[in-house]
């Protein structure tokens, strides 16, 4: 995986991706609302909106802090720092660093994958790259803070986080030992 790549593609502007997300969720919300109205009638609609309101009231006080904390993590650990850590470490330490860096990388696939391409061009080994991507997808701090804790609760989020914690390292070890993969 040390084959030099062409320059990594620039991440697309966030706005386009965000508008797509908004359209998707608007369509799904409207469809489920119509289905709810047809199947459960007016009483079902009232019940559903009451559930939504309860969620909203629970989420709002947490959300402000969660967003700020996600912002501080993001600003405190710059992208260049993540790249430097990953390039400098190898062995078991490399996998641990890749796991932490992956979890600290905010944003969706349009942010994470170009960074992996840059890492690969910079000579990170395939075990570290797999650990990084796996940690980003399983345990991204930003997603846990902004979505999981507010919607599913901190107990569930903690259970899932701890149960997933060792897995990126194991996946990275496996990627390094895979026979017949060449470089």
């Amino acid at each position: 995986m040390t084959v030099p790549h062409p320059a990594p593609p620039q991440p697309r502007p966030r706005n386009g991706a965000n508008r797509t997300s908004l359209l998707i969720v608007a369509a799904l919300s409207a469809a489920s609302g119509i289905a709810c109205w047809i199947v459960k009638g007016e009483a079902g609609m009232v019940q559903a909106l009451a559930i939504a309101w309860d969620l909203f009231v629970t989420i709002i006080p947490v959300l402000g802090a969660a967003l700020l904390l996600a912002g501080f993590v993001q600003a405190g650990i710059a992208k260049e720092t993540i790249g430097r850590w990953l390039g400098a470490e190898s062995g078991m330490r490399g996998l641990v660093v890749a796991t932490i860096a992956g979890a600290a990388t905010p944003g969706g696939p349009m942010a994470a994958f170009p960074l992996v391409l840059a890492l690969s061009a910079g000579g990170a080994d395939r075990g570290a790259m797999i650990a990084y991507v796996t940690a980003w997808s399983l345990n991204g701090f930003q997603r846990i803070l902004v979505w999981e804790i507010p919607i599913l609760g901190p107990e569930f989020a903690a259970l899932r986080f701890l149960a997933s914690l060792p897995l990126p390292i194991l996946a990275g070890l496996m990627a390094r030992r895979l026979p017949g993969w060449g470089r």
Partner: peptide, 22 residues
């Protein structure tokens, strides 16, 4: 992030309610 997330969340929460009832 709040500017991006809030509109999405305001649509996602009713969806959570509809799905829970459905």
């Amino acid at each position: 992030t709040l500017k991006n997330v809030l509109p999405i969340m305001l649509l996602a929460l009713p969806m959570a309610g509809f799905l829970t009832v459905l």
